[in-house]
């Protein structure tokens, strides 16, 4: 029972992990991108579209990543080069991305003459598989080594991003740009390039989150109305909960995933807690975290100081 619960939590948390890792990469360069929902939508559509036509998992994921990069590129052009308001640009991206997926999704449905389904071969490729030997270990085997391949991909990406952020030279440059672009600029870092690069990679990762939603959660059938359904926004919340650290986002996504499936696992006759409370909990906790970090006025574990403000070198 508990194992099943945790297993389901991991499954539900994975798309959030993609979205959160992507958004952390973006925010760490000083840009709050409220377009995660839109980028996920676009990734969801592209991956399904490519999967439907090519039956190739790698191609499908690449397509999701590429469309995420493209969407983030639009955002970067507007906010980095044209210095447009970040909130408004992000929200526009969400509207655009949602429309994009639904419009072309509808076209795809028309083309297929009904809801398109992925082939069994493809579904088999993304199904949950027990890793030989490791998967046979009791408890741990089921919990850690019997997932679909995208779960591992998400965790690997999150870990890679953490290592990149904390241990590499360009990761350091990125953190500096997000905290104080003026200082980074004076230190000889190409602020514009750094921003573009990480916003785009972040968008790509968000796109993969969308792929997870349409390929795995959708059960192989394209659902035009509710593919992403707010998961992008939860990811933005999770960034705060994870205090801008992808490694913590792994735990965070598990926690958030757990809340979203908890209602199915708490015995109804013992504790009577309304279902809505479980789904609300992540946001309540996030708000609480937000308040506590602001009370501590700590420079770590809070939003990068340069976030939300576009940088112009000759500002005076």
């Amino acid at each position: 029972m508990i194992i099943n619960f945790l297993f389901a939590a991991i499954k539900a948390g994975t798309p959030l992990l993609f979205g959160t890792t992507g958004e952390i990469m973006t925010e760490k360069t000083g840009h709050l991108n409220l377009g995660v929902e839109g980028m996920m939508f676009m990734g969801a559509f592209m991956s399904f579209f490519v999967a439907y036509h090519s039956d190739n998992l790698v191609l499908s994921l690449l397509a999701a990543f590429a469309i995420g990069v493209f969407a983030a590129f639009i955002y970067a052009v507007l906010t980095v080069s044209f210095m447009a308001n970040q909130n408004v640009t992000g929200l526009t991206l969400t509207i655009f991305g949602t429309g994009f997926a639904k419009f072309f999704g509808a076209m795809m449905i028309d083309e297929a003459g009904g809801s398109p389904k992925l082939s069994t071969k493809f579904l088999n490729a993304i199904s949950e598989k027990s890793i030989p030997v490791l998967g046979d270990i009791p408890v741990i085997g089921k919990l850690l080594f019997s997932h679909n391949p995208l779960v591992y991909l998400a965790i690997v990406i999150a870990i890679l991003c953490t290592v990149y952020m904390l241990k590499t030279r360009s990761g350091l440059n990125m953190r500096a740009v997000g905290e104080n672009p003026g200082a980074a600029d004076a230190a000889g870092i190409n602020v514009t390039l750094t921003k573009y690069l990480h916003i785009m990679v972040g968008g790509g990762i968000c796109g993969l989150g969308g792929a997870y939603l349409s390929l795995i959660n959708g059960g192989g059938i394209w659902n035009n109305s509710s593919v992403v359904n707010g998961q992008g926004w939860i990811s933005v919340a999770l960034v705060i909960f994870a205090s801008w650290n992808p490694a913590k986002a792994i735990i965070g996504s598990l926690v958030f995933g757990a809340f979203s499936v908890l209602q199915f696992y708490v015995p109804k006759n013992i504790i009577e807690i309304p279902n809505a409370f479980y789904v609300m909990l992540p946001f309540l906790i996030t708000t609480f975290v937000l308040i506590v970090t602001s009370m501590k006025k700590s420079k770590e574990g809070s939003q990068p100081a340069g976030c939300g403000v576009n940088y112009f070198r000759e500002e005076r």
């Binding site: 500096a176 905290e179 104080n180 003026g182 200082a183 990068p304 100081a305």
Partner: peptide, 8 residues
């Protein structure tokens, strides 16, 4: 005015 990143 120092060009330093406070959080680092």
């Amino acid at each position: 005015h120092f060009k330093l990143v406070e959080a680092l």
